Amino acid sequence: MRAQQFYEGFVSSPLEVGIAFGFLALFIGFFIVTAVVRGRRERQRIADRSRQTFERLITEKGLSRDEADVIRLLAGYMRTSERKYMLLLNQGLFDACAQTALETGELSEDETAVLRVKLGFRSRAGAALDSSTQIPKGAPVILQLSDGRVVQAQVRSVDGESLCTSLPEQAMPLRADDQVEVTFHHASGVYAFTTEVRAVAGDELRLRHSEHLQRVQRRRYYRRTIAMPAFVQHAGTDRTMIATRFIDLSAGGASLENPGRRFAAGEDISISFQADTSKMLHVIGRIVRTSRGGRVMHVDFRHLQETLRDRLYRIVFRS
């Protein structure tokens, strides 16, 4: 009897069980609602802070209302637009979103160039270039004109509107809207892009920016007319080096005077020369042909290390 009474003390009626479950459900519901409200408040706090950061950076960077709208457009390509202020700080993120917007036609190259300059997104050490706005001031460039002429120039300034270069006399006459192909050397490689002339003012050329830089293929080299002394001998011999001069030079080969017409097509030669104050450079090349009655030999460089080829590029593109 006592055992039965003890057992019945732990048995609840259906009403009591229902009330207990009701309180439990209310308790759980309270915590769920509290968590949801806290989550919304936290997200709102983060959104408010992100918006304030975005507005502050817009002011600090000096962006106009239209330019701020472009940033908001780019934010649409992010996983979460709440962190759109990162587009004003992170060049890699800006590049990725801008490239997508350019491909879809929602953003123009001119708009992108202006933003790059205002945001201070220049070239990064060792990184590939994305835009002509990243070409450094003072960099030598090669201009290939629509009539086939190739002239050398130098970058004088870069702003959001134009790439400004010197205007060699050999490039005249040039007019607004003329098409020009620009090639230049950078630590990350050799690049080329096609653009248009914005304006010609005296000895200054203003070119439209491009967001479509292409790396020049290894097989494609630009040749520069250059009168520079050199010494040559048959490769693999210890014969006396013979003085000669370059006629032109590229990162893939050269033309030189053929001293005494003693070298012939098909022969391998060793060429030594010194550019400016740098140490003596040595390259091996094969004479692919001769011209001008054998007085000029045209040489194809063989087995060049990339470090040496880069040095040749710097010589070729030097202003």
Rank of each mutant, 00 (worst) to 15 (best):
R245D: 13
M241H: 12
A235Y: 10
Q233N: 12
R208K: 13
T240E: 15
H234W: 13
R245K: 10
H234Q: 13
A275G: 05
E204N: 08
Q233R: 15
E257M: 02
Q233S: 10
I242W: 01
R224S: 08
D268H: 08
T244A: 09
A264K: 10
R223T: 05
D203V: 06
V197P: 02
A230S: 07
Q214H: 13
L205F: 06
R261S: 10
L205C: 04
I271Q: 00
F246N: 00
A230C: 13
Q214F: 10
I269T: 03
V216S: 07
Y221H: 14
I269L: 06
S210T: 04
D276W: 13
R219Y: 10
R223P: 04
G260H: 09
S270E: 15
R262M: 14
Q214P: 02
Y222K: 04
L207C: 05
S210L: 06
E204M: 12
M241A: 11
E267G: 03
D203K: 12
P229Y: 07
G236Y: 10
R224Q: 11
T244R: 00
T244E: 02
A275F: 14
T237W: 09
R223H: 05
I242G: 02
G266W: 04
A199E: 15
R198D: 14
I271R: 00
S272C: 12
V200Q: 06
Q217E: 15
Q274Y: 03
R239V: 06
A235E: 14
V200W: 05
Y222M: 08
D268L: 06
Q217Y: 11
M228R: 01
S270G: 05
H234N: 09
R239M: 10
R239F: 08
F231I: 03
R219C: 07
R261M: 11
M228H: 05
L249I: 05
D238Y: 10
M228D: 06
S255F: 00
S272L: 11
E211K: 01
A265W: 07
R262W: 07
Y222F: 14
E204K: 07
A264H: 14
